[in-house]
Amino acid sequence: MGRTLILHDLRQSDAEQFLPRDSVKYSLFAAAPPVRHCAGCFLCWVKTPGRCVIPDRGADFAAIMTKHDELIFLSRLVFGGLSPDIKAVLDRSIGFVLPFFRKLNGETHHVRRYDKSPAFRYIFYGVDITDKEKETAKKLAAANALNFGSERFSVSFFSSIPESAETLL
């Protein structure tokens, strides 16, 4: 298992063509075809702590996150945020943190379940990305990092899949 986990929404053929094959460095998690969406039941907090109860591969992601120093979201930029496929995985992974609240920068956020959280790196691709969308994406990344207890995050934008994947090589 690599030290960096790449959660990506590429089709299999694109993933094979563009993503790094260095499995010492990278682990890949394909968000497509999509996992089922979160049902809002909170059982990942109060019944099977740390794990989603919906039995598909989306249930594994929170545990896989714990094994990595860095989490890369390689995502189509949708309205200034993550794509639906990636978001489906992330919504299913809130068991990575505890339900309990703590105060950070004067706001409520979650207490960590584990000793550490991976750094979050957002690599967005899309055509005609607007400045407003970039602004939204940066705010989203900052908020996500706070809630998942991640101390570092970065955001970058590219106009195509090959360009975005190239930054990984």
Binding site: P34, H37, C38, G40, V78, F79, G81, L82, S83, P84, K87, A88, L90, D91, I94, L140, A143, N144, N147
Partner: peptide
């Protein structure tokens, strides 16, 4: 809608997309 991970719940996001 409810706020999910600082954004839109995935099923609604898919619909909007």
């Amino acid at each position: 809608f409810p706020l999910y991970v600082d954004g839109i719940p995935s099923h609604l996001l898919r619909l909007l997309d």
